[in-house]
């Protein structure tokens, strides 16, 4: 949940209860949002099959409004905006999901381990997370993006760095509240190794807020990618993404006001659905909530 460039909100165990209470959306809304999200993803996955080439330059027909040949008009080099929107959607969504996946893959195990046992590792992880959270996320994003360079993978890495701390915190918080419970003692007395306990017993019980966070981080990442592209730190031309399209559209608002409309709307729609469906994800992943 962020309209600014970063700073995920739900970053502290103190706040988690408030967040939980604020999510008072009825399940039907959450599920509708999840469906529209899937629809948009399907559009970007399958749409390009039917669309024109997104990189075909025809300078002569540039910056035209919607017409029967070009349903959304053309861009500054005469390329079809609709296909650039669809291919660009792929990039934006991939960056969004990939960066969250990277952040979770690194952050969750680190958080679980840090929460389970006190020690040097735990303190180190805690300190690093504190610094990453206090550090201005836009600055971090700009610097990591400049460092890694342009490109889908690099952008995902850069944004993952910004989002990893939240996962660490949440995983740790979940572990802290779980490890005192009886079933953990029981498992330990049975002789199960720590790693087994962490990943087979504790993790499934903490998955619920993590999936919610995953949805929110993805939304955050998509907006972050747009913002970075806006500042000129986006993907390699001629690849497009919604953020790149918005950046260029801003320069041509007078010449072609329609340019930014579709990418802007889709961006808002995706972020909206991710935020709204964040409540539905735990329902999918955690069978106990469904009961």
């Amino acid at each position: 949940m962020a309209s600014t460039l970063g700073a995920p909100l739900e970053d502290d165990i103190v706040v988690a209860p408030i967040i939980a209470r604020s999510r008072s959306l009825p399940p039907i809304v959450a599920l509708t949002a999840a469906c529209s999200l899937l629809a948009i993803i399907a559009l970007t996955v399958f749409g390009p099959i039917f669309a024109a080439a997104p990189d075909a330059i025809h300078v002569g027909s540039r910056l035209q409004g919607p017409s029967s040949t070009y349903w959304l008009g053309t861009d500054e080099l005469g390329r079809d905006l609709l296909s650039r929107l669809l291919y660009g959607g792929r990039v934006s969504l991939i960056v969004g999901f990939a960066s969250t996946a990277l952040a979770a893959i690194v952050g969750v195990p680190a958080g679980l381990l840090a929460g389970y046992r006190k020690g040097v590792f735990a303190s180190l992880v805690l300190r690093v997370t504190d610094v990453l959270l206090a550090f201005p996320s836009v600055l971090l994003a700009m610097l990591t993006a400049t460092f890694f360079g342009a490109g889908v993978l690099n952008l995902s890495l850069a944004i993952a760095v910004v989002n990893v701390a939240v996962f660490v915190r949440l995983a740790r918080a979940g572990t802290l509240s779980q490890k005192g419970l009886e079933y953990v003692d029981a498992a330990r007395s049975l002789g199960c190794s720590d790693l087994y306990i962490i990943f087979r017993s504790i993790l499934p019980n903490t998955v619920s807020p993590l999936t919610t966070q995953a949805a929110l981080s993805t939304a955050n990442a998509i907006v972050l990618e747009a913002g970075l592209s806006f500042l000129g730190l986006g993907v390699h031309p001629p690849t497009s993404s919604w953020g790149v399209m918005l950046q260029v559209a801003k320069s041509y608002l007078y010449q072609d006001p329609w340019y930014g409309l579709a990418p802007g709307l889709l961006l808002v729609a995706v972020v909206l659905s991710l935020n709204a469906s964040a409540d539905a994800f735990p329902l999918i992943f955690d069978w106990r909530l469904r009961a």
């Binding site: 990189d55 075909a56 300078v59 400049t146 360079g149 390699h236 001629p238």
Partner: peptide, 21 residues
């Protein structure tokens, strides 16, 4: 760069564009 890239592609040369600050 993008216009040149397209022309080069037509003659079988791959030019990758690397934008930096």
């Amino acid at each position: 760069a993008q216009i040149i890239q397209q022309s080069l592609q037509q003659i079988g040369v791959t030019m990758t564009i690397k934008p930096v600050d």
